[in-house]
């Protein structure tokens, strides 16, 4: 066998090998997803870290990705009645003029006030820390919206059409960021995290000391918004 033949054989074998193991690699990723029927575990706590130094003013890729993923596409005449699961907030410190831009959404508190005040228990926290609204028992009283310190919840003011089957929404119910629970349960990241062009958002398990998010929170100074309320938020910010 000549050298050229040997090289050709090795390249072909490597290519074939890659093709052979690719589905396996994919399956390994899928294998991290929770099997259907298995409840969420307390051993995990999903969270997010936002690096505000990387978050660009004027960029709303996360907001658009969220709207597409969750079917938030209705036209509402009064923008104050429109649902916003995630929004960009521009901040300015009046003392020194320093500015920040950051995404704001449900902070997935460990001690969520929305869950405390909900009369029917529709507002609930999953074992893995994701705060959700059960659309079947939400009566639309909006008490959770009064209680949320982050203005993270929206009330659906008008009938909806063209919904994403994986993300049920409904007239007269309250809703907020689900941390893309339907994606997380499949082992994927939330749509906003995936869409951020600057890589400013990190998603992961706060309880796993080896996860990227846990390591970064351990190494850098991060902030919980309204930390004075002692809600132990699952979403943390860096750089504010």
């Amino acid at each position: 066998m000549s050298n050229n033949d040997r090289r050709g054989f090795l390249a072909a074998s490597a290519g074939l090998g890659l093709v052979a193991i690719a589905p396996g690699v994919h399956l390994m990723q899928v294998a991290q997803a929770r099997p259907a029927g298995e409840p969420a575990s307390k051993l995990q706590r999903w969270g997010m870290l936002v690096d505000t130094a990387k978050c660009a003013t004027g960029c709303d890729a996360c907001v658009s990705a969220c709207a597409t993923e969750n079917g938030i596409n209705e036209k509402v005449a009064d923008p104050r009645q429109a649902a916003q699961w995630i929004r960009k907030i521009d901040l300015k410190d009046p003392k020194n003029g320093r500015q920040h831009s950051l995404p704001m959404m449900c902070q997935h508190c460990a001690e969520p006030p929305c869950v405390d005040v909900c009369p029917t228990g529709a507002s609930m926290k999953r074992a893995d820390g994701i705060v959700l609204v059960d659309r079947h028992i939400c009566i639309g009283c909006r008490y959770c919206m009064m209680a949320c310190p982050y203005k993270a919840r929206s009330f659906v003011h008008q009938p909806l059409t063209q919904q994403n089957p994986e993300v049920p929404r409904g007239l007269g119910c309250v809703e907020s960021c689900t941390l893309c629970v339907h994606r997380v349960d499949k082992g994927q990241k939330p749509a906003c995290v995936e869409a951020c062009p600057e890589g400013a958002m990190v998603f992961g398990d706060l309880e796993d000391p080896n996860s990227d998010i846990a390591r970064r929170i351990a190494q850098t100074a991060t902030t919980q918004v309204r930390a004075d309320l002692k809600l132990n938020t699952g979403v943390r910010y860096q750089g504010i």
């Binding site: 916003q84 901040l91 300015k92 009046p94 704001m104 918004v225």
Partner: peptide
């Protein structure tokens, strides 16, 4: 939401 800071957003 951010005491002491000036805020603006599409959510008023």
């Amino acid at each position: 939401i951010f005491p002491g800071m000036e805020m603006s957003s599409s959510f008023f």
